[in-house]
Amino acid sequence: MSDCREGRRGILASIGNTPLVELSSLYTGKPVKYYAKLESVNPGGSIKDRTALSMIDNAIADGRITQHTTVVESSSGNLGVGLAQICAYYKLKFVCIVDPHANAHNVNIIKAYGGRIEYVSEPDIETGEFLPARIARAKLLCQKDRDYFWVNQYSNIHNPLAHRETMREIADQLDGKIDYLFCAVSTCGTVRGCAEYVRESGLDTRIVAVDVAGSRIFPGGVAKRHFPGMGAGVRSPHCDDGLIAGYVLVSEQDCIRSCHRIVAREGLLLGASSGGVAAAVEAMQEHIEEGSNCVMIFADRGERYLDTLYSEEWIMQCFGEKCGEAFPGGGPYQASAPVVTLFDWNGGVSTEHSMDH
């Protein structure tokens, strides 16, 4: 198996080639093999290290970033950490634009790496979303100073290109036999890069995107979201429905419940989007054929969510109920069931299924 890290130096050499582990206790009944791609072992703690390195290295290579450049990006957390780490290594200045949904732990990590925080406190007037407001701030900063460079993960082609390598690793780890790949979406860089690799390599893999209720990526209505890194207030140009087999909309309670289940059954402490991916696989059980290899990309680690999705007090405050088997006496959660939408490749028609747990 080739190593994407060949030729890299320092901390950059530890980005990528993450482990793929089999999950033996999370699901029961059907003879299916479930695997988790653990992106939490990247040095910055998430899959966004790959994205950050790809975008920065390519901007350096083509001269858009020099030693005088200040790198700018709008990020809800994980990409900001990845960029802060890489900018620190390259001795570059970094400004991260965040909003009230940003994970405070991530913000403190960015500061520890020497990054500067630009805080957007009010959402976009037209949409009521913070993402357009953060993007507007990034553009404004770059207009004011020619030495500022906006990485722009939302349309930078080196975002999805980074994840062709992610998919290549998975294919190598399973000798090309991946029947299903489940991936959370936000900028859609990961799902697009993986899907393009699958198509170009001729793999017989069905890719299912996982989004959170309230996001604008897929139809389903707009609502308040608490967790960064999953869902988006604007549909990214990276999104391409023609590359996926379908999508699953999960609730934030689904994410919480599944994260607690994963801790209890597999000993993995993961972030919210990983719980969403696991909930989507659960909702898809009747569609996954026996004997399949099913891969889930778990994007980040759970330590940064201890004050939210792993806090009983926070869950009660936000949702008015206990969620997850980690809480004794919590009882069944009251979230609506995930909605599964699978595309009919022959007629181009989608079919929706509402699954009960």
Rank of each mutant, 00 (worst) to 15 (best):
Q153G: 02
G176M: 03
Q143G: 11
Y180E: 10
Q153C: 03
M167I: 05
N159I: 14
S186F: 01
V185D: 06
M167V: 06
V191D: 04
D179H: 15
P160S: 10
V191Q: 07
D175H: 12
R192F: 01
H158V: 11
S186A: 06
H158G: 13
Y180W: 07
T187S: 10
I170L: 14
S155H: 12
E169M: 10
E165V: 07
V185A: 06
R192N: 02
G189E: 01
N156H: 02
Q173A: 12
C183R: 11
T187Y: 07
Y148N: 15
G176C: 05
P160W: 02
W150I: 09
Y154W: 12
K177R: 14
L174Q: 14
F182D: 02
Q173C: 04
V151M: 12
M167G: 05
I178D: 05
Y154V: 14
A162C: 01
W150K: 03
C194I: 07
A184K: 12
A195Q: 08
F149A: 01
A195W: 03
R168A: 09
L161T: 05
G189R: 00
L174S: 11
S155A: 11
R192H: 01
F182S: 02
V191C: 06
W150Q: 03
V151C: 10
V151L: 09
Q153N: 09
N159L: 11
I170H: 12
N159Y: 12
F149K: 02
F182V: 08
I157P: 00
D179S: 14
Q173S: 10
T187G: 04
D179M: 12
P160I: 09
A162T: 02
N159C: 14
K177D: 13
